[in-house]
Nucleic acid binder design. Structure first.
Lengths: 231, 231
DNA sequence: AAGCATTGTAATCGATGCTTACATTCACGA
DNA sequence: TCGTGAATGTAAGCATCGATTACAATGCTT
């Protein structure tokens, strides 16, 4: 049903060398896969990359892993659970990218840090649109456990919150209502990312997207900055 | 497939009075429906309201219209085409709401008009989250015709653009780069709407959402306003 | 080595999107 | 008025999907 055309990939031929923990490999493929869960998540992750969340099907993941259509249900209660695992993985990578950007930012300048983080955020989103989309829909996993995604996400939020607080303490922010500045900042960045992803900027290249991203961030910073000579 | 549980609604019993254009009604339901296309769009529209775009199935729409599962394909080439029609309808109502808000705004004050339009935007989005989501994904219809949605949407964009230009001409905006202000404004409003819809504000009521929406809009306006005494 | 829990397979169910062949009705011209 | 073609409905069927159940193979613990 509304399936992406079958890529007919990875014929299920020779078994890949299994993870440590498997013993003998008497014939072609051993009965037990070795690390099926991880392989399924990887397959689903790739499917998201190829066609978005809608292109993820349990059966295709099983096909790519070389197992029967029912096997995945030993590891995931439902298709949504599989997608949640993909979201967890994507969130992990996203978080890592943000952390890396923050490390490379100038240590003493919170506003510049904010800019770097925001830019890394937008770059990752625009270069991994489908995975960003999977991360974004809280509806998928927020209510049924899966604390990892939420915690990683809360980490990113808390990180920007800390940065903005530092900037405020340093007298670089002109308004006092920090809470709303934070929400506005999140909304601005999130909204720009989703606009790019949702196709609101037709015929834009990545270059345009990232250049405008910088401009938007600068505009935001000048909007919240303590008044001085403006642009 | 990942279907919402069948609501078993509207048993297909007595035919509703058909649109003008149908002639005799010899037995229970006439062979031709009369206005199937419209009824299908209405059914799909309701399905979107009940469970989001994912809950829309051609067969369920046919069921609710009281026709065979294949009948809808006489009017829509695919499920996506049906969804596009729903998006068109939703966009129409959204646009009407925006226009209404603009009429009620003070005539001479562009910034205030911007605030009113933005608030109406956010209110509609938060009260019709699933329909807003359907409108938002340009991917669904932007590339295959369906100019109505795009044109209505461009109308809203152009409307805000005009308002901001008036504000700029009136000297109420402090920065000169109007284009980026427009994008930032769109991103901010869109982002806030999607955050609310995507569940980034757990345990918020509509009241919280709309109150914060006002605050966000005010913050944006004060951020782009010509410098004076700030909050 | 025995036995139990884990993890895979086979077969199946109900649902879906979509197509093809056929049936019915409408609209319009002779 | 009466046909006849176009429009619009139905029936049946295909391939795919998520999910469940019964069964088989394996790994681990004792």
């Amino acid at each position: 049903m509304r399936r992406v055309p079958r890529p007919s990939g990875s014929k299920r031929g020779q078994a890949k060398p299994r993870a440590p923990g498997a013993r003998r490999a008497p014939a072609g493929r051993p009965y037990h896969h070795g690390d099926l869960r991880r392989v399924l998540v990887e397959a689903a992750f790739e499917l998201v990359g190829e066609g978005g969340a809608e292109a993820v099907s349990v059966r295709e993941a099983a096909r790519r892993a070389g197992v029967s259509p029912a096997a995945p249900f030993r590891h995931f209660a439902s298709r949504d659970a599989l997608l949640a695992a993909v979201a967890e993985e994507a969130q992990r990578r996203f978080r890592a990218e943000i952390d890396r950007a923050l490390e490379q930012a100038p240590a003493g300048d919170p506003l510049q840090q904010f800019r770097c983080v925001g830019l890394a955020y937008l770059r990752w989103a625009m270069r991994n649109p489908t995975h960003f989309e999977v991360i974004s829909s809280r509806r998928l996993f927020d209510h049924d456990g899966s604390a990892a995604v939420s915690s990683d996400n809360a980490g990113v939020i808390g990180l920007t919150e800390r940065i903005l607080q530092e900037a405020h303490a340093g007298g670089q922010i002109g308004t006092s209502d920090l809470k709303q500045v934070l929400i506005a900042g999140r909304a601005l960045v999130y909204g720009y990312a989703r606009m790019a992803i949702d196709g609101h900027f037709p015929r834009w290249g990545v270059a345009d997207g990232e250049a405008t991203a910088e401009a938007i961030l600068d505009l935001f910073m000048s909007g919240i900055a303590r008044r001085s000579g403006h642009s």
